Computed example of a mutant assay.
Amino acid sequence: MIDAEIQQLEERIQRLLAAYRQARLEQKRALQERDRLLALNAELRRRIEGIVERVRSLESEQQA
């Protein structure tokens, strides 16, 4: 009886540890994806700002 309960507890502990490891892995991947998207966003922002600056420059030249 005690042996069966201990076995069940050990199996439950193993399942919990596996779930914990999986959650940490998913969190790590999510953080990496967030960092990748933040870097991409910053690059796109720089490109858009460059385009806006060129458009403003062209508009200034046309008004002059």
Rank of each mutant, 00 (worst) to 15 (best):
K28M: 12
V52L: 13
E49F: 03
L31W: 11
Q22W: 01
E53R: 09
Q32Y: 08
G50C: 02
L37C: 05
Y20K: 15
R36A: 12
A18C: 08
E26S: 03
L16C: 00
E49S: 07
L58H: 01
R47E: 15
I2V: 12
A19P: 00
L31Y: 09
A42R: 03
E33P: 00
D3P: 00
L31G: 07
R12M: 02
D3F: 06
V55T: 02
L9V: 08
R54Q: 15
I48Q: 05
D3H: 02
E33S: 05
R34P: 01
I13C: 05
A64H: 10
A19L: 13
A23E: 06
I48F: 04
R36E: 07
R21H: 13
Q32G: 11
N41L: 15
A39G: 03
Q27V: 03
R24S: 08
M1E: 09
A19V: 07
L16Q: 03
E59W: 02
I51N: 01
R24W: 04
L9T: 06
Q7M: 06
R24P: 01
R15D: 09
R47K: 05
K28S: 15
V52P: 08
N41Y: 10
R45H: 11
A18K: 04
E33A: 13
E59G: 01
A39H: 02
L9Q: 08
A30D: 00
A4N: 09
L58W: 00
L25Y: 06
G50N: 00
A30L: 13
N41K: 14
S60C: 10
R29P: 03
I13W: 01
E33W: 01
Q27L: 12
E10G: 04
K28A: 12
L38C: 12
A23S: 05
A19N: 01
Q63C: 06
L58Y: 05
D3C: 02
E59V: 02
